[in-house]
Design a protein around this nucleic acid. Sequence first.
DNA 1: GTGAAAGCGCTAACAC
DNA 2: GTGTTAGCGCTTTCAC
Lengths: 339, 339
Amino acid sequence: MTRRPKIKDIAERLGVSPATVSRALADTGLVAEPTLTRIREAASALDYRPNVSARNLRTRRSMAVLLVVRDIGNPFYLDVVKGVEAAARAAGYAVLMGNAENDPGRESEYFDMLRDGHADGMILMTGSLPSTPEFRRRLSPNLPVVVALEMIEDVDFPHVQIDNAAAARQAIAHLVGLGHARIAHVSGPVPEVMSIRRRDGYRAAMHEAGLPIPEGYEQRGDYLLQSGRDACRRLMALPVPPTAIFLANDEMAFGAIHELRRMGRDVPGDVSVVGFDDLYLSEAFSPPLTTVAQPRAEIGRRAMGMLLDMFGGGSAPKEPVILPTTLKVRGTTAAPKMT
Amino acid sequence: MTRRPKIKDIAERLGVSPATVSRALADTGLVAEPTLTRIREAASALDYRPNVSARNLRTRRSMAVLLVVRDIGNPFYLDVVKGVEAAARAAGYAVLMGNAENDPGRESEYFDMLRDGHADGMILMTGSLPSTPEFRRRLSPNLPVVVALEMIEDVDFPHVQIDNAAAARQAIAHLVGLGHARIAHVSGPVPEVMSIRRRDGYRAAMHEAGLPIPEGYEQRGDYLLQSGRDACRRLMALPVPPTAIFLANDEMAFGAIHELRRMGRDVPGDVSVVGFDDLYLSEAFSPPLTTVAQPRAEIGRRAMGMLLDMFGGGSAPKEPVILPTTLKVRGTTAAPKMT
DNA sequence: GTGAAAGCGCTAACAC
DNA sequence: GTGTTAGCGCTTTCAC
């Protein structure tokens, strides 16, 4: 037997119908005991495996989900992907990889893949959607799509996310608790939603603490290393430079620490630094980075879980699911120097 | 029209046969001009998209590849995945994500997925294969499988990789060039092939330089942070500690630097450190890590390219494809202190 | 509990 | 150049 066996082969060999074989192998409980075992044994003897294309065509399902991120090369997504993968595999789903690269054209392609039957559902971590009317028109509201990690406004897919503003407040509260009064912020690429939320959290916390935000204490970055460097340089060139900097992600925080070192400033001796995300090796940095950790693996698992619920006919939560963040206090924050 | 349109719908609407529609949409060049445009227009008017399951069943191809890594949570794979994804998408292939977690059971599942028609080919980055005779027996030699990044011995799939030994020699030559004579090595989890190769490169380079490898100068790690720390501590406790340490990956190098700092040793003032891999943020470390960079994205692209060749009926190279590495000299290496 | 028959939506032989 | 026909391999009514 060199050709790949199909259901018909087993059926003929055993003198039963293909339907019975299918039922036996699918564990429907509809096949009686003498036959059941014979079929299972024959299948395993022939090393039979069902053809997925045929099954998918017939059942109109693909048993796959599509996971679309902004940039597959960013370590930020590692744990989320891992969480999704684990939950998917546990439920028997395969995971297709999507890389949007901030290109609306690609985002729209992934929606097409969903329609084409490549996947039964999609987890979106792109933070945006194509804005062409043509795309929007097609956008049926009950598509099996879950938005994770990011937020997409004016579209009502279920969301799994963190409270970015609250997380930022945690970070600032920590610095205030240490005695800092001159706290600056380097934001992400405002006006993206996430960047705005984190910045607003910073503003709110400063306000609550009764601290001013002097001119120039809010710098705009783009989440990349170099922008952390640049923003830091501008900050330290101010007439009254900050004693602490809260950056909207870890990567910029690394850039800032670099720049501070280059200028001969000690971290945390002279300036405290707080990041956001808790990347894979942020703990390995020296000194270990103080940062806000999001439960990324859990976000992935939950997103996948919500998709599965939707597949099962359940309705997705109308309100966003908010997961708790944790402030990891490590080595880059300390009390400010006495003045 | 609420139901999803199929080829038949277009055919009926235009009074042509389904076959013609299929041919027109597939750009076979077999459909003449008046009809061709009419079909295209009707398809786009109906917003028609072919059903992939049906097409896959009929063509016996899935237009997908399976990318299997050791641990999807490891940043090490980011660029390779990116390279594979880019090459795959350029060729019209989707990428399925596989996570082996060093579990032979899972590895074998991914081979099953290949057989089931989930994917047309597979890129393996696991460094090992299930060793059960049952699995080995099934292992047809001309499966569409490419091994990338890692090496799998006693199996003849095509490989894309780097010359690990030569790369290690580059690293040691650099240290020797700086004037170091007491150079230690922290290996990966020997007896894995890659760990052995890197260690052998170290040994060869030391030998070439006429330098001894004193008792205890070779420590075994497991590629994780903590093992870098531990190995470093053992190294520095030796009667004559090294002035330079070459670690088999960046993550362990970070651990070692940490430990050195903790012991009050300056890097690179007191001890030089060289890593291997050039992770995403190794350049952002402080000081920036001196390390051996592998062309990971290129490895991914090449692996995908080789698969495509195999799909096209071409034969894969019998000899491994070896890509060049680059030593990135950065801030963690310097001349040894005068004694 | 099992079988017969239909059909998922597409493409590829083969006619003409 | 286009139509006709068959069939990819599976699951699922519907009978009995």
